[in-house]
Design a protein around this nucleic acid. Sequence first.
DNA 1: CTGAAAGCGCTTACAG
DNA 2: CTGAAAGCGCTTACAG
Lengths: 347, 347
Amino acid sequence: MKRVTVKDLAKELDVSLGTINKALNNKPGLSDETRKRILKAADNLGYKVNRVAQSLARSTIRVGIIIPDVWLEYYTYLKEGINQELDRLSDFNIQGKYYTVSSLHSGKESITALNDCVRDGMDAVILCPLYHADYSSSLNDLYQKKIPVVVLGSDIREANKLCSVRVDAYKAGRLAAEFMGWISAKEKPIAVFIGNKDFSDHKDKVDGFLDESKKQPYGMVSIFETHDDPEIAHFMTNKLVRETSDLGGIYIATGNSISVCKYLSENNIKNVRIIVTDVFKEMIGYVKQNIIQGMIFQDQIAQGGVAVRVIYDKLVRNIVEKETIFIQPQIVLRNNFEGYFKYLKVE
Amino acid sequence: MKRVTVKDLAKELDVSLGTINKALNNKPGLSDETRKRILKAADNLGYKVNRVAQSLARSTIRVGIIIPDVWLEYYTYLKEGINQELDRLSDFNIQGKYYTVSSLHSGKESITALNDCVRDGMDAVILCPLYHADYSSSLNDLYQKKIPVVVLGSDIREANKLCSVRVDAYKAGRLAAEFMGWISAKEKPIAVFIGNKDFSDHKDKVDGFLDESKKQPYGMVSIFETHDDPEIAHFMTNKLVRETSDLGGIYIATGNSISVCKYLSENNIKNVRIIVTDVFKEMIGYVKQNIIQGMIFQDQIAQGGVAVRVIYDKLVRNIVEKETIFIQPQIVLRNNFEGYFKYLKVE
DNA sequence: CTGAAAGCGCTTACAG
DNA sequence: CTGAAAGCGCTTACAG
């Protein structure tokens, strides 16, 4: 019943607390034999560290967070998740420091931020990667210095990182296709809007959608790149609607669903089914107008929270998760989407 | 930057730590004036208690949990949620103790358990209420003794409790009706199976379904009580399918969806759309056979976790949440339901 | 390689 | 009504 403490171990083995501590935390200055004896006894007696006491005694853990301050409707939620978890862990003596990047495309800035994290003595880093940036040499550097890096939101493949946390994009695509099968009429053609086929997360969504589409009664599926630019998305919607009179639906797999909805609403087009990605406040009106039938929720809050927790687990408990942590996508409909705003607690 | 501690307050105001502690925790033995002076200074200096240090110093918080050990596919998940959260808080010096009840209907047993909690000196209680039990006098007793009670899973209305935590049943009903509108053919009649119209949670689901049905293209909706008995559910499905040749779909709003699916599967009935409640392992086969088209997930894990956290917040931080905490229902489809098992982490 | 002491920020008796 | 001391379970210098 009573908890086994380091004191109990020290008494049992007749060594000092310092020695116990070194053995438990794998620190140098201890004979191999003593270490083994202590670890074995700890195991036998069922010793479990009290993390509360531990965090009270040790120095503060500092986490650098590299995140763009543009495309706010997306990154705000990741940040919110990070902040919520940091707040929850704040009494555990862990602190975050933000390094913001001012563009989605300037990889240079975010590589500088990575180096700044080293300079500022961060114990770990959360990195929201930009497209077209080559992080490999900086990541190698951090790896050498034993500073774990968690890649958040999308992935940097084959790089030195602790792990990546992101939505299961393939599954998100499949889920969208399944729902599209219910809401769109038979045989009608379907369009998918993504940012860029070269980005693996985008590609995964397309692949998922296409694979599941084989089982669905709707017609041919075509893929369009919007480069995540609202004007392109608006233009493409216009073109598509004009040229494909019997268009069944559009799945907007990445950003810019708002400009698509705007076009449909302004032109009073009611018979094109729409599945969007993420749940943002700007969508409220379009859901109520029945322009949007479904939303694929990627739970950025959970993604951000998990990123922080992975770091905490690594640094404090030395627990390493698998290399990719997938957040499960959800489908959200008109009758429950408002709950997501309350849940998100973001204004 | 540096955290303000009780010591800082004591030094600043030139009083002892004990006095500071009494003021901060609203304990007796202190002049009103001193108390006010301390609280004001704490506020000014931005003092925030360190819960880690606090939990290290105070005695263990004990929570009694009254839960049936029948209908496992449901209660197991509530328990899992409770256990996960207790585990997360275990270093904060909080412990749970289970009081199991052997039937869903014997209110007597769970009232005895409530009294046992008092006898055993529990600091708080989580109660999963049974139908047809009159808890009011026991709950009054606990209320007198200042032992907070959280009602979990369903509600006990107009009783002395801290709060109740449950799914938003009305919204669950609406969500089911919305999805039924997509999957069921126009004009076809729909059936809703619930346990008992007299139970408020069941009634709420029916009300939600009926309200949303007004906007839906399917035909008349009829409600059937199964008394949460698998044999009755099986029998009713049989009768319904035979007598209503064009039946569009069934929404099983409470338990026993498995016996409905079993009937449909055995009799090779493919054209009745099915929405079930909860996501259980027994459903896997029926989802893959396309007997089940949608599942309304009530996130029992979250419900259990929130119940524990509400108690922790009340006892440790003296924060009181609103009287009803609603967990949001989710709709889950074939392509993402398997993620829920991993997420649930229950075997 | 090992040990004794101080300290993290609180709470809890107990003494005055 | 107020204060001084011990202790919760760890870690971190520092001394030997």
